[in-house]
């Protein structure tokens, strides 16, 4: 393993974040505040509790997941797509780095960013509502796992994308609807039976449900199922990335 290369990639990516620190951190925080104003105060005041939890508090895990998923995908896809776009990927391809080195460097940096944003959103949420996290260790671990998993997914999109349009296509057209329909702002049990059944095919449902369990010990599905689903998805993403590098799919000519 090329530790110096992993360190170089990680620090290089992090320095890119620090150059745009204001927009990197400020945008998700403002979005969260807006969600709290709209859903927490305006709509939330009309809803008393869900499963015994006040609505403002109930939506916190969903809001964190919403931002973390989008940030993970965007950070990781952009991190590898941009070198492809400007041609600096050739330096990476000509360097003695393995696929694992590349994954650790890029995914490590992207996951660090999205994890930091997740924590920042939690802190922002704490300004609006009292938060009492029942399983803090599981919460941190599950958040980290989610960051890594969706950074891997974003990395695939970045490798696959031919242009900026394709780069935005998956997050905008697939991830955003899945997150909004994945129980970010409601419990799946509140839906009619048909939609409940249909929601079971939405992988984000398991993420939000699992994450909500770490906060409130209440969830639509067992935490173990959420954990297995997330780890399985991460494994699948890893296999796809290794395959793409091995076959040079859309990487080398």
């Amino acid at each position: 393993m090329n530790f110096y290369a992993i360190k170089a990639i990680y620090l290089f990516e992090m320095s890119r974040t620090f150059r745009t620190i204001t927009q990197s951190l400020l945008a998700p925080v403002i979005s969260t505040i807006l969600y709290f104003v709209v859903f927490g105060s305006a709509i939330g005041s009309k809803i008393q509790t869900i499963e015994g939890i006040s609505y403002g508090v109930f939506i916190v895990p969903g809001l964190v997941m919403l931002s973390v998923l989008m940030q993970s995908i965007t950070n990781a896809s952009f991190a590898i797509y941009f070198p492809k776009f400007i041609g600096t990927i050739n330096e990476l391809l000509s360097a003695p780095v393995s696929t694992l080195d590349i994954i650790i460097g890029y995914i490590g940096a992207a996951a660090t960013k999205s994890f930091s944003i997740g924590i920042l959103i939690l802190l922002t949420a704490h300004l609006f509502v009292p938060l009492n996290i029942i399983h803090p260790f599981y919460m941190i671990s599950f958040l980290l796992l989610t960051c890594f998993t969706f950074c891997l997914f974003g990395f695939i999109i970045g490798l696959w994308a031919k242009n900026f349009e394709q780069l935005n296509l998956v997050p905008m057209l697939i991830i955003t609807p899945l997150v909004f329909l994945g129980g970010s702002f409601y419990s799946i049990s509140m839906l009619p039976l048909f939609w409940q059944k249909l929601s079971m095919f939405n992988p984000v449902v398991y993420l939000i449900s699992g994450f909500r369990w770490t906060f409130f010990n209440v969830s639509d599905f067992s935490f173990t199922i959420s954990l297995i689903a997330t780890i399985s998805f991460a494994t699948l993403c890893l296999i796809i990335i290794f395959y793409m590098f091995k076959t040079s799919y859309k990487i080398r000519t």
Binding site: N2, Y4, A5, K7, A8, I9, L11, F12, S15, R16, R19, I86, G87, T88, N90, E91, L92, S94, A95, P96, V97
Partner: peptide, 28 residues
Amino acid sequence: LVPQEVSIEQFETVLGTVNFSRGLFGKK
């Protein structure tokens, strides 16, 4: 390799990009 195209991260500093290359090639 000195490539034909001038493809370098434009917002990085000279020292930063040279150190990055050294690290990428496994050198302390």
